[in-house]
Amino acid sequence: MAKRRKRIRIKSAADIEGMRVAGALASQILCEMAAAVVPGVTTRELDELAAARMKESGSKSAFLGYRGFPGYTCLSVNEEVVHGIGGPRVLQMGDIIKIDVGVLKDGWIGDNATTVPVGEVDLTTKRLLAVTEQSLFEAIALARAGNRLADVCGAVEAYVKPQGFTVVREFVGHGVGRELHEEPQVPNYRPVGKTPILEPGMVLAIEPMVNAGTASVRILDDGWTVITADRKMSAHFEHTVLITEGEAELLTARPREATPEILGIL
């Protein structure tokens, strides 16, 4: 018997209003954390900043306790791809840190991520960040009603690969709403086979994870932190995106953080 595809949840107008609130809050906390990234700060201090902001806003972390995850946010440094845990690690000049913030507000989840350089970083790392962020916007441009999910997914790798970087295949984006991970999965490469046609009211967390070297990754002994197999740098950007009849709406809208002029875009 063929496996039955799980239903993608279509959000109502009231649902979407709730998700706008959660998305804006997730974006605000992410931006505050990014602004606090300086040489000498610890990843625990950044996580504690997020915890305080969540408490002040009457929201909760969508990550804390999820399958046992011990942090309020995911904080991954340099070769750490995703799911890093805040701790005593001190950020140094030339590092990069991936900050992933998910909040639960009034029953709805906002989920977003960025990669922040710590002080000045080398040109290759700047390009990695700019390419990764631009690949996210390449995908978002195709996230509209009538297109297939595969068009969105394929846009990431199609942009990244000619730039000399690779996309992580073991970890993917996802639908989001009342649950952190809803259908559908949103890989950063074109999946094999037929994929759903996008409809207004679908909400996707699109999140390219791009490596400077090999696409291969492994998980550290803490059971969470994902690192590149060759220990080269990795970048991660994410937005929660609402599918509409026209251009997608960024529920986690914020200013561009990388430097697109490096790519000749501006």
Results as ranks from 00 to 15, higher is better:
residue 36 A to G: 03
residue 39 P to R: 05
residue 14 A to R: 12
residue 177 G to S: 00
residue 226 V to H: 11
residue 143 A to Y: 02
residue 237 F to H: 14
residue 174 H to V: 08
residue 146 G to Y: 06
residue 134 Q to R: 14
residue 187 P to H: 00
residue 145 A to V: 01
residue 140 I to Y: 05
residue 200 P to V: 00
residue 184 P to V: 01
residue 40 G to Y: 04
residue 37 V to H: 07
residue 217 V to T: 10
residue 53 R to A: 12
residue 59 S to E: 05
residue 150 A to T: 06
residue 150 A to C: 12
residue 250 L to T: 12
residue 72 Y to R: 15
residue 240 T to S: 10
residue 144 R to A: 01
residue 173 G to I: 05
residue 46 L to C: 02
residue 197 I to W: 01
residue 143 A to F: 05
residue 68 G to Y: 01
residue 92 Q to G: 12
residue 29 I to A: 08
residue 257 E to M: 15
residue 189 Y to M: 07
residue 22 A to P: 08
residue 159 Y to W: 06
residue 120 E to K: 14
residue 140 I to V: 15
residue 98 K to T: 15
residue 142 L to M: 08
residue 34 A to V: 09
residue 76 S to I: 10
residue 230 D to K: 02
residue 185 Q to E: 11
residue 92 Q to R: 11
residue 240 T to W: 01
residue 77 V to S: 02
residue 125 T to E: 03
residue 157 E to Y: 05
residue 64 L to T: 08
residue 160 V to E: 00
residue 83 H to V: 14
residue 89 R to C: 04
residue 162 P to A: 05
residue 15 D to S: 01
residue 7 R to M: 08
residue 72 Y to Q: 13
residue 34 A to H: 11
residue 68 G to H: 07
residue 251 L to H: 09
residue 160 V to T: 00
residue 201 G to R: 11
residue 8 I to N: 00
residue 112 N to P: 13
residue 248 A to C: 05
residue 63 F to P: 11
residue 238 E to M: 15
residue 76 S to P: 12
residue 234 S to A: 13
residue 215 A to L: 11
residue 220 L to I: 10
residue 122 D to A: 09
residue 29 I to M: 02
residue 260 P to C: 04
residue 77 V to I: 13
residue 2 A to S: 13
residue 56 E to T: 09
residue 139 A to V: 02
residue 109 I to M: 03
residue 253 A to K: 14
residue 103 V to M: 12
residue 112 N to Q: 11
residue 157 E to H: 04
residue 229 A to V: 07
residue 157 E to Q: 02
residue 111 D to R: 08
residue 177 G to Q: 00
residue 191 P to S: 09
residue 178 R to Y: 03
residue 241 V to Q: 03
residue 158 A to P: 06
residue 211 N to A: 13
residue 100 D to Q: 15
residue 108 W to S: 08
residue 34 A to R: 10
residue 243 I to L: 13
residue 233 M to N: 14
residue 261 E to D: 10
residue 239 H to M: 05
residue 231 R to H: 13
residue 261 E to M: 00
residue 131 V to F: 04
residue 45 E to H: 01
residue 242 L to T: 12
residue 102 G to H: 09
residue 259 T to A: 14
residue 266 L to V: 15
residue 99 I to Q: 10
residue 173 G to V: 04
residue 45 E to C: 05
residue 123 L to T: 13
residue 63 F to T: 12
residue 195 T to F: 01
residue 4 R to G: 14
residue 91 L to Y: 04
residue 106 D to P: 13
residue 18 G to R: 06
residue 25 L to G: 03
